[in-house]
Design a protein around this nucleic acid. Sequence first.
DNA 1: AATAATATGTCAAGCGTTTGACATATTATT
DNA 2: AATAATATGTCAAACGCTTGACATATTATT
Lengths: 318, 318
Amino acid sequence: MATIKDVAELSGVTVTTVSRVLNNRGYLSEKTKKKVSEAIIALDYHPNEMARSLAQKQTSLLGVIVPSLLHPYYSECINALEKHASSHGLKLLVCNAQRSPQKEAEYIDMLKANKVAGLVLCTNSRSSVRLLANLPVVTLERSISSNVPAIVCDNTQGGQLAARHLIAQKCTNLVMISGNRSTEERANGFAKMCEQVHIPYKILKTNQSQFNHLDYTDLIQEIFTDPAVDGVFASSDVIATQVIQACHKKGLSIPEDMKIVGFDDVELSRMVSPRLTTIHQPIEELCKEAVQTIIDWDKERGKEQIILPVRLVQREST
Amino acid sequence: MATIKDVAELSGVTVTTVSRVLNNRGYLSEKTKKKVSEAIIALDYHPNEMARSLAQKQTSLLGVIVPSLLHPYYSECINALEKHASSHGLKLLVCNAQRSPQKEAEYIDMLKANKVAGLVLCTNSRSSVRLLANLPVVTLERSISSNVPAIVCDNTQGGQLAARHLIAQKCTNLVMISGNRSTEERANGFAKMCEQVHIPYKILKTNQSQFNHLDYTDLIQEIFTDPAVDGVFASSDVIATQVIQACHKKGLSIPEDMKIVGFDDVELSRMVSPRLTTIHQPIEELCKEAVQTIIDWDKERGKEQIILPVRLVQREST
DNA sequence: AATAATATGTCAAGCGTTTGACATATTATT
DNA sequence: AATAATATGTCAAACGCTTGACATATTATT
């Protein structure tokens, strides 16, 4: 593997000069630039990123910690993060904390040791906040501390939109299935809207183990204990999908007997039958903002929370 | 941030000694080890991985290039790769080539510049083979060159199993929807089995653009041109899912009017209704072997192709 | 023609580790 | 008591790049 030294020798200048043309800094004559560029091509030279990082005390790596790699929501986040990161020359270092705060802490240490340029946190545990010092960090769809900028969607609005839509579709008795901490606002918006128009509703909470296995079938059974229920708002498309399955099993047709609204608008919502009506989360934009926040970190740009609007996408389940 | 020098000073030894206890090489007295360990803890010292990599000329990064991050198959691969990589102290650098050979080549250059310990390739383009010199590489569910070890599942067997199962379920007229190059063997196995028992069949080929958008609806319509068709083998669960949707739209009930078998056995196959009968790919094992091959690279272990068996999982779509 | 401004380039000290070569102390073997 | 073997450490040169400080050449300004 050719080094910067080889390039310098071949082009008859010093390594400094080569470094200058590499990074395009300081004055350089066109002639020199050309000579060096030719040598670079001739030697098929690629700068050693390790050496570069060491000298600069920073890499072009962007860390991401997610609670799961199987949940389609995080797959889509990773997709969008990779896209925006790579467009800025950043590479994605993907970590799956599997909802273990301890694993998460280990990953944070690891990422710091690897001198990542920044970290996008998609997990909940506040326990790791103190580890985050001196590291550009942003949380996605989570708030863990006022010191850490959070990029979130308007969850309250999402809950309201879902309730309003179900009500507009003539539902008279609603149930929401609420997930982990971050879906509380969705539940709040949902409840508020129901109360405003005096529609009876119930909120069912999932537990950790259910989230871990993406299996909510037991909980979903509770929907059917009250035969009056004719509309369900699920706090994720994954949960909504299982509600669909449960309805099929019960012989209820959708949307005639039961209307269902999901949340996230991941690919999955277009793959099930009937296709899901759902609250669209602007994953692309969320991730774009997240990457941008990391990149602008030193520019002392505002580091406060960013809230992006959501919208309802109607399909066949309502 | 504390450096190895600080640790050395605090514990009254030289950096070499600290490095020795860090890497546990050479003779060390228990007393020294303890002194150093204490200093490490006291200073909350974490070795700078960049410096370490530079000195060792290798990182603990494992590169992965996939053609898509939205396709659930690759999500599951990444999940499994991350799991096995991290259990060996390797971190996952995820690259989405988006099926562009040029992007793929760029990523390979980037990964080499970053001195990754190895690369897991989940893409097709043979064009990048020459870039792969001097880099531990393994392909997953792909074969691009006899010089590059490939970890694949028994696709021919998968095709046979699917055909045999549909036939056993009393299907009399079959269609297979075949995807990109890597699904050819699945088609071959399928065709062979059909011919063996004289069952009429047809094979429909998807094109690149369809794969790109995960949208096969147009192609799927062709299934219904022949009303005698009563069984479909899709070369992926994603395709099978769309066949289900098309059947619903046509008013065909599954499995009564149409039986469907997918391939991959990703989470999605359990989320649709009816749940999919599918060929289970041992993704976990494939990825485990892939990581192991990279780790054992220098041990001159066999670098030939590894073929893992598949099995049929029957659910509700047949 | 003297001076300033600009352009072009070199030197050498880092960045934080690892590691082969070497030195000294301690213990076991004859 | 001499010798060998083992244990415990230290020195200093790499690894490949960046960058502030400095030197010289060229051009513009007065």
